[in-house]
Amino acid sequence: MSADFEAALKEIGGKLSQIEAVMDLDSLRKEVAELEEEAARPDLWNDPEAAQKVTSQLSHKQASLRRLTELRQRVDDLAVLHELAEAEGDAASRSEAEAELAEVSREVDALEVRTLLSGEYDERNAVVTIRSEAGGVDAADWAEMLLRMYLRWAERHNYPTEVYDISYAEEAGIRSATFKVSGPYLYGTLSVEQGTHRLVRISPFDNQSRRQTSFAHVEVLPEVEEVDHVEIPEKDIRVDVYRSSGPGGQSVNTTDSAVRITHLPTGIVVSCQNEKSQLQNKASAMKVLQAKLLQRKKEEERKELDALRDSGSSWGNQMRSYVLHPYQLVKDLRTDYEVGNPSAVLDGELDGFLDAGIRWRKKQSEVA
């Protein structure tokens, strides 16, 4: 085995061993066995919500365990594959081993990022809201581009999405949209996207083809679970119903099934129109409201600590710039991670930005 290959493989193996220690492989196997036993109980589905939680946890834990064990097997197999290639002088096999080494290295790095997600809600699904800000019709179009970007990213990773509500702008694009992305550690992963996203381009809505700068804000919240106990008395909310509508105001529903909920003490307003049933829309809207109230509660608890931190590190500030003209560049202003292919990023290739953001956040917390 060549010295360079051996050194690279040793580094990857060591990094994987650290990941196995952090994720506690023995405990993970034990948790999977216990959840499998619980999932096999004949009375499990007597409580559908509890059953759903058990099966979801089992699926996530099994996937983590499978990913770890398969990566360890691939690392072990690499040493044998490269030794055989060297012994036989087989250039094709040597090239195959080097390609596999690079791929395993990428996957181990991605798994290492997962171990940095240790926040209270990091394991949960993510509820994302996008709002157009300064920039008029271009900002509304930009908000819709961001919506597509995140939905394409989720699609690439086979994460189910559910769009709760879209408010269309009059000329083009959207005023706002709220959707859920389901999967392990998605709140922790996507929370680094929170902040203001800036687009610079030649406006397709300007007949003089002038350059336009547009802004949209992304908010990321954890999906609320029953254990959070966010109590919302009926007297504290006003529920309005209306007809769902699509672009151009054309009716897509002939009944008043869309729901808008106003939380009277805080003034928070949420809406949902993706279901045909008014009850289903109300239930979805209540989940979003609970998430917003939970976030508000956590922010109040952290207020004293946040006041001691440098306001310049706030995620509420502009955090990423997408330039389509006069040059092509997407740059994260916190991490300095950048890509010269905006089309790929806007088509959902976000993993590099997410990994860099998670590592940056970890360093920020260590400094604080």
Rank of each mutant, 00 (worst) to 15 (best):
Ala39Val: 03
Ile130Asp: 00
Arg41His: 02
Glu123Gln: 08
Ala92Val: 14
Leu147Arg: 04
Ala85Lys: 01
Tyr159Cys: 08
Leu58Asn: 08
Pro160Tyr: 03
Glu120Phe: 05
Asp76Lys: 11
Ser176Cys: 07
Val128Met: 10
Tyr164Lys: 14
Ser167Asp: 07
Glu83Gln: 09
Leu111Gly: 14
Glu86His: 02
Asp43Val: 10
Ala50Gly: 12
Leu65Glu: 06
Gly136Ser: 05
Ser105Pro: 15
Thr161Gln: 05
Asp138Ala: 05
Asp165Gln: 09
Arg175Phe: 10
Trp153Ala: 05
Glu88Cys: 02
Arg67His: 11
Asp43Cys: 11
Leu35Asn: 01
Ser95Leu: 13
Glu38Lys: 05
Ile166Gly: 01
Leu44Ile: 05
Ala91Trp: 12
Ser105Cys: 08
Asp138Pro: 03
Leu101Gly: 00
Asp76Arg: 15
Arg94Ile: 05
Val181His: 03
Ser167Ile: 13
Val54Met: 13
Leu146Phe: 00
Val137Tyr: 02
Ala177Glu: 04
Arg175Ile: 14
Glu103Arg: 13
Thr55Tyr: 05
Leu68Trp: 02
Thr178Pro: 08
Lys180Asn: 09
Glu96His: 12
Arg66Val: 09
Arg66Asp: 11
Gln62Phe: 09
Ala126Asp: 06
Ser167Phe: 13
Trp45Ala: 07
Asp141Arg: 03
Ser56Trp: 12
Val54Cys: 11
Gly183Asn: 00
Asp47Thr: 09
Tyr121Thr: 07
Ala126Leu: 05
Ser182His: 12
Leu81Trp: 05
Gln62Glu: 10
Asp43Thr: 13
Ala63Asn: 11
Ser56Asp: 10
Val54Tyr: 04
Ala92Trp: 15
Lys180Val: 08
Arg66Tyr: 06
Leu146Ser: 03
Leu117Phe: 02
Gln73Gly: 15
Gly135Pro: 03
Arg94Ala: 15
Ala177His: 02
Asp47Gly: 06
Arg175Lys: 11
Thr129Asn: 11
Glu36His: 05
Leu78Glu: 00
Glu120Cys: 10
Leu117Lys: 01
Trp142Tyr: 03
Glu88Ser: 09
Ser182Thr: 13
Val163Lys: 04
Thr129Pro: 09
Glu144Tyr: 03
Glu162Tyr: 07
Pro42Trp: 00
Ser93Asn: 12
Glu155Gly: 12
Arg74Gln: 11
Leu68Lys: 04
Ser105Phe: 04
Val54Ile: 11
Leu78Gln: 03
Tyr164Pro: 12
Asp90Val: 00
Gln52Lys: 13
Glu36Gln: 08
Ala139Arg: 04
Arg106His: 08
Trp142Glu: 00
Ser64Arg: 11
His60Phe: 08
Gly135Leu: 02
Ala102Glu: 15
Leu84Met: 15
Leu117His: 00
Arg124Asp: 01
Asn158Gly: 14
Trp45Cys: 05
Val137Glu: 06
Ala154Thr: 01
Arg114Asn: 12
Ala143Asp: 00
Leu78Phe: 03
Arg156Val: 08
Leu35Ile: 02
Arg175Trp: 07
Arg152Phe: 12
Asp47Phe: 04
Leu146Thr: 01
Arg152Asp: 11
Leu65Asp: 05
Ala172Thr: 14
Val127Met: 09
Gly119Val: 13
Asp141Leu: 04
Ile174Ala: 01
Thr129Gln: 15
Arg67Ser: 10
Thr55Arg: 08
Ser118Lys: 06
Val128Pro: 12
Ala87Phe: 02
Leu65Trp: 06
Leu146Asp: 06
Leu65His: 02
Thr69Gln: 13
Arg114Gly: 08
Glu171Asn: 14
Glu123Pro: 14
Glu155Arg: 01
Glu37Asp: 10
Asp43Tyr: 03
